Computed example of a mutant assay.
Amino acid sequence: MDTIVIGIAGGTGSGKTTLADKLVESFGLDEVCILRHDNYYKRHDDMPFEERKKLNYDHPDAFDNELLRKHIEDLKAGISVEMPIYDYKEHNRSNQIVKIKPAPVIVLEGILIFDEPSICGLMDIKVFVDTDADVRILRRIVRDVKERGRTLESVIEQYLTTVKPMHEQFVEPSKRRADIIIPNGGENIVALEMLIERVKKQLKKHNI
């Protein structure tokens, strides 16, 4: 199946998810599908809840990149996949799945998708969403406290002990692999429109 794979990366709270969602919304349901890297956190059924809470979820080793790569390759081959669903409150992969059907445009969204060469190499367009650190941490606090039921203290502690150092070690350097760097994510309407036009030109160029 002829496809275009678009990778959208960036730090936590950068706006990459908003950008990815708006990009998906700009195409028809049969034209695009989306995979989210967060759903590919490794399963830890053998580990107690209190131990799962202590894991470093901002390190590349936290992800099942082998499964993600296989799903991308299957979609490119015209095969539907079952994307896992991650439960943030349980700090573990749930037993639910979402069936993803093949589409001409595959959007892959996640913090560390550019860090893994085998996944990065499957992308046709690599977009990095670049947003100031103070904005990102504020967005993360609001999201984790309101949507994921975490305490303010736990969010700040996690940010200082894992999120910030992992961003500096892995996420920020991966920006060098991007084809396009967009400030402020989905709020950058001009950049979003330019990206949409770029994708449409690619589709037309390859008669997809």
Score class of each variant (00 low, 15 high):
94 S>E: 07
97 I>A: 10
122 L>R: 11
63 F>L: 14
91 H>G: 00
98 V>R: 14
1 M>F: 10
94 S>N: 07
148 R>K: 13
118 S>N: 14
111 I>R: 09
118 S>H: 09
192 L>I: 02
10 G>D: 05
201 K>M: 11
34 I>G: 00
202 Q>T: 04
15 G>Q: 06
132 D>Q: 12
103 A>L: 05
157 E>W: 12
142 V>P: 00
19 L>Y: 06
7 G>E: 09
82 E>N: 15
21 D>Y: 06
71 H>Y: 00
183 P>M: 05
8 I>W: 04
133 A>H: 04
6 I>C: 05
26 S>F: 06
24 V>H: 08
83 M>G: 00
24 V>E: 12
53 K>F: 04
208 I>M: 13
178 A>K: 09
169 Q>E: 15
208 I>H: 03
185 G>I: 03
31 E>L: 08
160 L>T: 08
201 K>T: 09
185 G>E: 00
76 K>W: 06
122 L>P: 00
104 P>S: 06
35 L>N: 05
106 I>E: 00
179 D>H: 15
86 Y>A: 05
3 T>P: 06
22 K>L: 15
10 G>F: 12
61 D>Q: 12
193 E>P: 01
123 M>A: 07
63 F>E: 03
206 H>K: 14
51 E>L: 14
52 R>Y: 10
148 R>Y: 05
141 I>Q: 07
80 S>T: 03
128 F>T: 02
166 M>L: 07
149 G>S: 10
126 K>H: 08
178 A>P: 04
47 M>T: 13
121 G>I: 03
196 I>V: 15
27 F>Y: 12
195 L>S: 01
35 L>E: 14
44 H>Y: 14
35 L>V: 12
95 N>W: 02
116 E>C: 08
82 E>F: 08
140 R>F: 03
174 S>R: 09
134 D>A: 10
123 M>V: 06
118 S>R: 13
20 A>W: 07
38 D>Q: 11
104 P>C: 00
57 Y>F: 15
87 D>A: 07
14 S>A: 13
147 E>R: 01
57 Y>D: 02
69 R>C: 12
71 H>G: 02
73 E>V: 14
173 P>S: 11
116 E>I: 13
94 S>Q: 04
18 T>C: 10
133 A>G: 01
